[in-house]
Amino acid sequence: MTRDPSPVPPLPPVAPRLLDWFDAHRRDLPWRADRDPYRIWVSEVMLQQTTVAAVVPYFHRFVAAFPTVAALAAADEQRVLKLWEGLGYYRRARHLHAAAKRLVAGHGGALPDDPAAWLALPGVGRYIQGAVLSQAFDRRLPIVEANSLRVLARLFGYRGDPREGAGKAWVWAAAEAVLPAERAGDFNQALMELGALVCTPAKPACDRCPLAAACVANRDALQEQIPPPKKQPVVTEVSEVGVVVRRGGKVLLCRRPADAGRWQNMWEVPHAERLAGEPLAESAVRVARALTGLAVTPGAEVATIRHSVTRFRITLAVVGATAPRGAFAPGAYAEAKWVTPDELADYPVSAPQRKLMTHLASGGA
């Protein structure tokens, strides 16, 4: 059972100083040009677990393709996933698309100033609710993410882990306690900006911080101890085999089912875990037969792709193969298409698969 959070101790008012700093130092980001709730929403979904620098070009492309919630709702999911390709965590894109459809169906395409309506949408939790409603409508709702969490923990000198359990409840209470009655959205952004630019994980620039005089961690020289380091998961090494099945100058591309655990509805060459001690050619034959129903003749290894997913570090050995006859059997995959190397760029794929597609399109064997 999660215990009640420790009480949030009083602090001198910090909002005026932080807002003055934000007005002077805020970065010129495209979603800050106005208070359009749609643009704010898209940016906040993209920024979850992704850096600002990585998001900016994706944001420009996405809102150019889907300038309104109605345009996003009307889009084909494959196009949405294609424009998201490379950002990772593709469930965010699917939730964004599904939520847009609900907003059009239930709210006429308007983004409501209604906390309950937002929490009813796919992919929306307390953070997205607070970020959109505070920035677009100046609702007095707090937000907590990695940067603001660090600022708040240091500011109050909180020695527990604010990422989980009672600490998580505490940091949300702290975020609400410091929130001003006006300019709540700017204050939320200022907390994040301060964490990104000044109150950094290592070697924070306390001499440039507008809140240094009120900060308990700065007073007690605890910046390096607060918050405590994240618990690192045990990394598991995984060996996989992928099969580039060719027929008549084309490559077999398969679409993952909608209920796949990862990369739902995205495309790839068939691949699966390689058995311990299994020769690569035998592994390719087995995987192709199991996933596509095709009997293939394996050839040489054409690429090795290394990537990580959560706590798994994966080495994907890719084998070229031919299948002059036989029909694809759906089951493991929802569907498959024979495509030319030049057409590989048209399909939404994961980052490791994109490396492979680029290799194949450039003439890789």
Rank of each mutant, 00 (worst) to 15 (best):
P12N: 07
V14I: 15
L18I: 12
D23M: 11
R27V: 00
R27H: 01
W31I: 01
R35H: 10
A53D: 15
A53R: 08
F59Q: 01
H60V: 03
L72P: 02
L72W: 00
A74Q: 03
Q78E: 14
V80I: 03
W84P: 03
L87H: 05
Y89D: 03
Y89W: 07
Y90F: 07
R91G: 12
R91P: 06
R92I: 12
A100I: 04
K101N: 07
R102F: 04
G108P: 09
L111M: 09
P112Y: 00
L121M: 15
G123C: 04
G130R: 01
P142Q: 02
P142G: 02
E145G: 10
N147M: 12
L152M: 13
E164C: 14
A166S: 13
W170S: 09
A174E: 08
C199A: 13
C206N: 03
L211H: 05
L211G: 04
V216E: 10
N218C: 01
D220G: 00
L222K: 02
E224W: 15
Q225M: 07
I226E: 04
P228I: 13
K230A: 11
K231E: 15
Q232N: 02
P233E: 01
V238D: 03
V238T: 11
V244T: 06
G248V: 00
G248S: 02
L253V: 12
R255T: 10
R255H: 02
R256D: 09
G261Y: 01
W267K: 00
V269T: 01
E273K: 10
A276C: 04
P279H: 05
S283A: 15
S283K: 14
S283V: 14
V287I: 15
T292R: 13
L294P: 04
T315G: 05
A317I: 00
F328N: 09
G331R: 08
A332S: 12
A334D: 14
A336H: 02
A336I: 06
K337S: 11
A345E: 13
L360A: 13
